[in-house]
Every structure is written in C-alpha cells, then in structure tokens.
Design a protein around this nucleic acid. Structure first.
Ligand SMILES: [Mn+2]
Length: 251
DNA sequence: GCTCCTT
DNA sequence: AAGGAGCAACGCCGA
DNA sequence: TCGGCG
C-alpha cells in the first residue's frame, strides 16, 4: 500500500536531501535548476520500509561518484514507480516495472539528450544525466536502475568499455564468481588488457575493461565471447555460457 | 510517474 | 471523473 | 524469418 502520510525519509544520509516542500510535492534546487520531486513518503522497498525519498537521498549522496560514469552516455532507465515489488492487475502479478530510453513528455529542457539515428533514417532522442538535477529528475521517475551506454554519445556506436558479467547460481556464490574473475584477468593479461572488477548484486562480479577508441560493438562482442568460451573450455565445472537461466545451475 | 486516450 | 495503455532494443537461440 | 527470452 503506497503511503502518502509516512515519513519521506527513513535512512540517515551524510548529506540530507535539501528539498523544500511546496504544496503536495518537493523542490530541489541544483545549479539553478529546479527539480520537482513527488511522493517521497511512498514505500519502494516494502520489506525494509525504505521510501522513494530514501532513493532520491541516496542518488543525491552518491552523485559525485556516479555522475562521471553517466555523463555523456545515453541512459536506459529501469523504472519501478510502484517500488521493487509493484505488480500490474493484469496479467495478474506481472511486475509493473518498465524500461525507458526516450525523454518522457514532462522532461525539463535542461535534461541532456543524445540524438541518434533510429529505424529507417529517423532520429531518436535518448536521455542522459549529466548533473545533480538531471540525475534526480530521472530518479524521481521511479528509476531505480540506470544503465549507461557502453559508448559515449559523441561516438554512440563505438563502445569504450566492455564488461564480463559473472552471475553465480546457488550453490555457487561470490567465491566461485571471483574464481572465474581470475580466469578473466588471466585472459586479459595475455592480451595486454586491464580489467576493473566490482561486486554486482548480492554475490555477482562484473569486470569492466577499457576499450581503445575506434572499435565496434561487433568487435568487442567477438573478443568477450572468445575469452568467455576459452574460460568455459578451461573450467567447464566452474563456468557456463548457458543462455537459459534454468539450465545453468551451480555455476 | 505521468501523459494521453477512451469511456 | 475515472480507468487503461504505453513507456527500449538487440543478440541469441530454437522453431 | 519469427517469437521468446536475456
Ligand atoms: Mn550480473
């Protein structure tokens, strides 16, 4: 049950969100831009009771860390305006989340866009987030996940990084994913490439690899696929490229 | 979360 | 006034 | 070539 009456924030953050209430909503001012924020008390994480306000405060607090990774790249938003457990009435129980890439109609003109060629000679506008205001604007849409493009807008078809996504399936966990990550590092070493690992979700690992300018997605996909197949061949019990998630148990 | 379109 | 639909895009794979 | 799935 969405609440409009509960507290807007339930988690203390180093820098509280400096949003001022204005009638039924809030206004955040950042670098002269006014961002309208709505429904802060709405519970987005029912299990923990975390609110949309908590989400916005989170993105405000990590802005300095996250913005360098978003700026100049188109974003695919994963929007969950009814929280992480929201569902649609029909079909019954279907998650009410959805993806969005184009600026919705109410997007302020100061939110940056990337114009890219679309289907059949058309042009499409894609969202970007370049500063605190645009970051908080997309977060207010109920966007919990943000997926930045592997390529910068200026060279939208030339990725400047590739990623190895290691998702352990029970009973495998983080340790097993890290072990596969070491295989990835060995392969990258032999190619003179450097990978930057990070945790992902509860038990996963992702390894980001900078790619020199001038390469296509087809090329990076080919390299990543070749490395992945080598690892599966070397460690068939520890790694799989199985596409069907129900078929990749234990790896 | 918000707009648009149909009832 | 109330309610529903729409909101990305692409590679992989098996049919 | 199409549809489901990621
Ligand atoms: Mn993952």
């Amino acid at each position: 049950m969405p609440t409009r009456t509960g507290p807007p924030f339930t988690v203390a953050t180093p820098r509280p969100l400096p949003a001022e209430r204005e009638g039924d909503h809030w206004i955040l001012e950042a670098a002269g831009k006014q961002v309208k924020l709505t429904n802060l008390p709405k519970v987005y994480w029912p299990e923990q009771g975390y609110t949309k306000g908590d989400l916005l405060a989170y993105y405000f607090n990590v802005a300095d860390a996250i913005l360098p990774h978003l700026a100049g790249r188109t974003l695919t938003l994963k929007r969950m305006p009814d929280g992480i457990a929201g569902t649609t009435p029909y079909p019954r129980g279907t998650p009410s989340s959805f993806f969005e890439r184009h600026p919705p109609k109410n997007t302020p003109d100061w939110v940056p866009r990337c114009v890219v060629p679309g289907e059949g000679g058309t042009l499409a506008e894609n969202l970007m987030a370049g500063d605190v205001a645009s970051l908080l604007f997309v977060a207010n849409l109920g966007c919990i996940d943000m997926h930045p493009s592997h390529a910068r807008c200026a060279r939208y078809d030339e990725p400047d990084w590739m990623v190895f996504d290691l998702d352990p399936m029970p009973p495998s966990g983080f340790a097993e994913a890290a072990a596969v990550g070491r295989h990835v590092r060995a392969a990258l070493d032999s190619l003179g490439l450097k990978g930057y690992p990070k945790t992902s979700g509860a038990t996963g690992v992702q390894i980001f690899v900078p790619v020199a300018p001038g390469h296509t997605y087809e090329q990076t996909r080919g390299v990543a696929g070749a490395i992945a197949r080598l690892i599966v061949a070397a460690d068939p019990d520890g790694a799989t490229l199985e596409w069907d998630t129900t078929q990749r148990g234990g790896k």
